[in-house]
Design a protein around this nucleic acid. Structure first.
Length: 434
RNA sequence: GCGGUCGUGGUGUAGCCUGGUUAACACGUCUCCCUGUCACGGAGAAGAUCGCCGGUUCAAAUCCGGUCGACCGCG
């Protein structure tokens, strides 16, 4: 009885409305309403792993038009710890970001600190490179080589033992602890604890990992509902809405299955059959297959719930994701590229740390209305990079964030105007032409 | 004037004493990479006939002489 009413309240944590569906594609535009505001979809979700969009203040992100950010359970658990953040009033207050926040469960760190650790392996494999043998033997991470280890994780069916990449200390994450930590962090949308596998994983390992992820999904959901019941019990007598406002996130399940279409399909059926508020598509891909996999998965997922594509964010992949029915995507691309000197433009990428921009008085993009393009030249940015000034990474990250946010805004308008296809064609033709 | 120290890629150095295959390193430069962030990082390339002239030697950045230049000390 109590449970049933809670489910209603709980699912109302994110109210998802589809405003428009694409005519020739499964692209859609809509709104996700969260306790901290509305996310107009499709939306790009910048990554703030350690409760910071690296190099960019929360206020600047708001000015850029960022609507939702993506923080990380594992890293925030290590430092400063969820207790500190909870007592600070939650992530929103802690980092002065008052808009919606999603948290990742730590499942990606099973990959990034595990199979990928120090190997330079991406979750997106490129068949063209793999066939040339260039996927192996890439850069050794500095810390990996320093510590002489190839993995910081040990996985078993109950959970994952991590070694901190900072100090080597041991930390255990299970579906239960990940969900509990995410509740403590106070995000609006949280994710089930999963195992993100490497694209190099064998089919048999992929099957094993998928089974585990499915069991973890059920456990994540159970833990989530348990915590919701605990939160809601006293306020149910009085102002229930108020109490829920404080701390009751929506939970998204994560579809896995790696590069195997049949595993993706069965995962989508399984995860899609559980009572999640929305869904995320995670794991590894072949670059060339992202669209097909996302389409396959989304055909199995309930259309009335939001779909998030995890960790995908190169320009052409964003179009692919949206075209195939994804509502939100998170990616480190704008901030990581920016930090390494690369800026996105509608004509493709530029690396401003190159001396060839030393006397280039133009802005990054002539008609860009971001704060950086309005006030600073390529020459100045190039100088800042070569002088190793911190401001360099801040400014390029701001431009890149603006680029992705504004691109998403245009995509949304295109869907609403029923011309997504032509917009995509026009944009990508120019973007990929150089 | 005398004595000493030093001249090696763009910059700073290592190698020289105990001559020997493609002269090493750092920074800089250039190119490429980055997809639920361990990482303001990674991978690669170009670039010096070792101040100049001569000698010794099978072989000289390396030993010897001379010379030019810089610096230091003494006059």
């Amino acid at each position: 009885m109590e449970y049933a009413s809670l489910v209603i309240l709980y699912t109302s944590r994110v109210k998802f409305t589809v405003e428009k569906k694409g005519r020739n594609s499964t692209a859609r535009a809509g709104e996700i309403e969260t306790p901290h505001g509305i996310i107009e979809t499709p939306a790009f979700v910048p990554v703030a792993t350690q409760a910071a969009l690296k190099g960019v203040r929360s206020e600047a992100a708001e000015t850029i038009g960022v609507s939702v950010i993506f923080a990380n359970t594992f890293h925030l658990h290590l430092s400063p710890g969820e207790a500190v953040i909870k007592s600070a009033g939650g992530l929103h207050k802690f980092m002065n970001w008052l808009g919606p926040i999603m948290t990742d469960s730590g499942g990606f760190q099973v990959f990034s600190l595990g199979a990928a650790y120090g190997q330079g392996v991406s979750k997106v494999a490129r068949a063209s490179l793999a066939s040339m043998g260039q996927d192996a033997g890439l850069p050794l991470g500095s810390l990996a080589s320093k510590l002489q280890v190839s993995s910081l994780v040990k996985i078993n069916d109950d959970g994952v033992d991590f070694q901190s990449p900072r100090d080597g200390s041991s930390h255990r994450l299970t579906p239960e602890s990940s969900i509990t930590i995410q509740h403590d962090l106070g995000a609006d949308i949280i994710l089930a604890f999963d195992e993100c596998t490497t694209p190099q994983a064998s089919y048999s390992y992929q099957c094993e990992a998928l089974e585990r992820t499915h069991r973890w999904a059920e456990r994540s959901l159970e833990q989530h509902q348990k915590l919701l019941r605990r939160i809601s019990r006293p306020p149910l007598k009085g102002a229930q809405g108020e109490a829920l406002e404080l701390n009751s996130p929506a939970l998204f399940g994560i579809v896995q299955g790696g590069r195997a279409p049949e595993l993706r399909e069965s995962s989508a059926k399984f995860i899609g059959g559980l009572n999640f508020d929305g869904f995320a598509i995670g794991g590894s891909f072949n670059k060339e297959d992202i669209g097909a996999v996302v389409a396959l998965v989304n055909r199995q997922l309930l259309p009335d719930r939001p779909r998030h594509l995890l960790g995908i964010g190169e320009v052409e992949d964003i179009f692919v994701g949206v075209e195939n029915g994804v509502d939100t995507l998170d990616c480190v691309t704008p901030t990581r590229l920016g930090r390494h000197g690369t800026v996105e433009t509608k004509h493709g990428r530029l690396n401003l740390s190159s001396g060839k921009f030393a006397a280039d008085s133009k802005p990054i993009e002539d008609d860009c209305d971001c704060e950086v393009c309005r006030h600073y030249s390529r020459a100045y940015l190039s100088h800042l990079f070569r002088a190793r000034e911190m401001l360099a990474t801040t400014l390029t990250s701001i431009h890149n964030l603006h680029f992705f946010i504004s691109l998403m805004g245009k995509i949304r308008v295109a869907i609403l105007d029923d011309n997504f296809d032509s917009f995509r064609h026009q944009f990508l033709t120019r973007y990929l032409s150089t």
